[in-house]
Nucleic acid binder design. Sequence first.
DNA 1: CAAATTTCTGGGCTATTGCTCAATTGATGA
DNA 2: TCATCAATTGAGCAATAGCCCAGAAATTTG
Lengths: 328, 328
Amino acid sequence: MAEFGPKQRVGGMAAPESEKSRLDEAARAGWLYFIAGHTQDEIAKLLQVSRASAQRLVSLCLAEQLITFRLEHPIAACMELASRLKDLFHLAYCEVVPTDPAQPLTAAGIAERAANILESTLRGDKPTIVALGTGRAVRAAVERVSPIDCPNHQIVSLVGNISTDGSASFFDTVGRLADRTRARHYPMPLPFLMSSKNERDQMLRIDPIAKVRAVAAKADLRLVGIGQMDQSAQVHVDGFVSREELFEMMRLGAVGEVVGWAFDAEGRVIAGGINDRLTSIPLQVPAEALTIGAAVGRAKVAAIRAALKGRLINGLITDEATAGAVLG
Amino acid sequence: MAEFGPKQRVGGMAAPESEKSRLDEAARAGWLYFIAGHTQDEIAKLLQVSRASAQRLVSLCLAEQLITFRLEHPIAACMELASRLKDLFHLAYCEVVPTDPAQPLTAAGIAERAANILESTLRGDKPTIVALGTGRAVRAAVERVSPIDCPNHQIVSLVGNISTDGSASFFDTVGRLADRTRARHYPMPLPFLMSSKNERDQMLRIDPIAKVRAVAAKADLRLVGIGQMDQSAQVHVDGFVSREELFEMMRLGAVGEVVGWAFDAEGRVIAGGINDRLTSIPLQVPAEALTIGAAVGRAKVAAIRAALKGRLINGLITDEATAGAVLG
DNA sequence: CAAATTTCTGGGCTATTGCTCAATTGATGA
DNA sequence: TCATCAATTGAGCAATAGCCCAGAAATTTG
């Protein structure tokens, strides 16, 4: 677009000036609209232009960032973090709740949110399959779901809930949720880990198990916890994984786990180690059904970041402090 | 409204909590609306409430000042000042233009605005009587009115425009404006001051003069300058008022003048002095027809403030620096 | 524990806003 | 000077927001 000097100069002189007075008017209009609270009609009369032009000026004021909004509330930071996480990791869902300064590790806030999602999903008319994973937050969420009658939905476990000692009760989140909702439910009557890959593979071929797995694979909503793989890993603390097994996974690069599947810092599910003997439903990579991870705490930051990177989850519920750490 | 302790306590426990979560939601809604740019419908879905409730939350966010608007533009300060002046002095009209840092005393900005008002008034269909006073700003405004054909309107002078030496041209703003608009016009063929009260009163009884005065008294819009009454008073500089007369008025408390009528710091028109010999159209106190004063400059602050206090004008055009000084 | 009162919710209506399109205006170049 | 082009304008319409009212839920009172 080569142009003559004079032309450019004229443009250069004229445009900024008209531009400037236009921005002045836009600022005026914006002030009258947002601060004085006038309607665009009134502004049009005050500025002696048509209403359409007044609307354009208000738009311009916004587009040129002449006016900015400032939200004086703790929630604002949470919304901001959620928005950034959503953009950065292409999440379908993201919620950041304020961190309780008194108990920074409490799952109460995120459990509340997760319970909210569960409830609204279960209240829907459309028959839905809800799959539940491991994690304190998931258990707490289930406890907070208020009893509703929704027999059209199905609830299925993503993870074997027979502990090494055979007790199932504490980890039977599926059962707890089904109690409250009277939905059809499919617990996973399997140990978390089998003793060998072969044994695992055999187990999974058993018909009732295969059926549960088929239901789980079709789940519309997966709600899972995200565990870190360090010495205080929940899977170890709860006795599902021995110290040696844990160390082995850490050697293989594991930083976190979702329903038992250990993954490295890039979010790649690790081949080998206990993953070979795990009975949990496989992860979709990248996640297709809405798969919401719920986790808080400094210790889980690396695990959360990896799970997001690897697209093991496409939804996240966390708190402000954790979200900030994941991003920062 | 004496109430039982327990009641209050219960209320005291419940209200703040629900209040808090309600404000949280309001903040969320406000964020989504103003910052993320969602519609209220979308917000309703996101927050799992009806659209009506979403609207309430957004309103609440505004009402509770959770969100504030900030206009990053020099105009913002002007709008703010204008708004405060308007409220404080019950003005029907107020405009504050940015101060040109290069020429803080230039009347260009306010003349532009005043010209704007004149033009839009004269462009109107309704037959209107426009009365013009003294002052640089008024003259400059007239010069900036673009030629339009509006024979339905009338233009009248508020002040005698025969100078002591008999020349009228420079101060004949009425004639200049009439040239550009072809409106009927009524100059005031009188000296600014007569030599005595008696002579003035006789003069005003002359039929053609009385007729002009009758038209002027019915003016729909009065555009006047505001002069300070100090040693550099325009009425003195222009030779209408002698040094002695000026000092006399200052002794009587004069701080300013509008179309020659000197008034004190409270905006009361002074009885006696040159006011007795003035041929100008009397001021309406308080102003009823739209009476717009146009003035800028540090020196005029006291005069402007007084004119506003005394309701000698109900409209004001000034610049940012002057407006700030008037308020401060 | 039931009745009364207050507060809150969502439907539906109206005002306001955002946007598209045709027409006009003003600028540019032959 | 006139034709051409881009920018801007205002009318009209569809989407959005604001608000009132009846009904529901929660809370308080007797």
